[in-house]
Measured scan of single mutants.
Amino acid sequence: VTLFVALYDYEARTEDDLSAHKGEKFQILNSSEGDWWEARSLTTGETGYIPSNYVAPV
């Protein structure tokens, strides 16, 4: 399991995006899409895309 933590708040801009709150942890499901990674929030269980530069490894 690849875990990352949000460094900043991010507000989803499309229905495919996933909002993130600073300190929230995510499981990365797919990081092969360049700057946008598919992730699952460990807080809400929701999945979507987050900007890779907004997260760091735990």
Rank of each mutant, 00 (worst) to 15 (best):
E11G: 05
F4W: 14
E38Y: 15
T2M: 13
L18Y: 03
E33S: 14
E24Q: 05
F4K: 01
N30Q: 08
V58A: 09
I28T: 01
G34H: 11
L42H: 04
D35H: 11
N53G: 11
F26D: 00
G34V: 10
E11A: 10
A6I: 06
V1Q: 13
G45E: 04
D17F: 14
Y10H: 04
S31M: 15
Y8K: 07
L7M: 08
Y54T: 09
D9L: 06
A20Y: 07
A6D: 00
T14H: 14
F26Y: 04
F26V: 03
E24R: 02
S32R: 11
G34E: 12
A39I: 06
P51E: 02
D17L: 08
Y54V: 15
I28C: 05
R13G: 08
T14C: 15
Q27D: 05
F26M: 04
L3H: 08
G23R: 01
W36I: 10
P51Y: 09
D35P: 09
E38F: 15
K25R: 12
G45Y: 06
D16M: 14
W36N: 06
S19P: 11
D17I: 08
L29H: 04
P51M: 06
G48L: 05
F4S: 02
D9P: 06
Y8M: 10
G23T: 02
G45D: 04
H21E: 08
T43H: 10
W36D: 03
T2H: 11
E46I: 10
S52D: 01
S41H: 03
W36R: 15
Q27S: 07
R40W: 06
I50L: 12
N30T: 08
E33D: 15
T14N: 14
K22W: 05
F4L: 05
K25Y: 15
K25D: 00
K25L: 15
F4R: 02
Y49V: 06
E38A: 07
P51S: 06
A56L: 07
N30K: 09
H21M: 11
E46Y: 09
S41P: 01
G45A: 04
S19V: 06
G34K: 13
D9Q: 06
Y49D: 01
F26N: 00
T2D: 10
V1A: 13
W37R: 01
G23F: 04
S52E: 02
S19C: 07
G48N: 01
T44S: 10
E15G: 13
I50M: 04
G34L: 10
A20M: 15
E24W: 05
D35S: 09
D16A: 14
V1H: 13
L3V: 14
E46C: 14
A56S: 09
Y10R: 04
L42N: 04
A20S: 05
A39D: 01
A6S: 05
F4Y: 14
K25I: 15
E33N: 15
A56C: 12
Q27I: 15
L7V: 07
L18T: 02
Y49F: 12
A6E: 01
L7A: 03
Y49R: 14
E38M: 15
P57S: 06
V58T: 07
A20L: 15
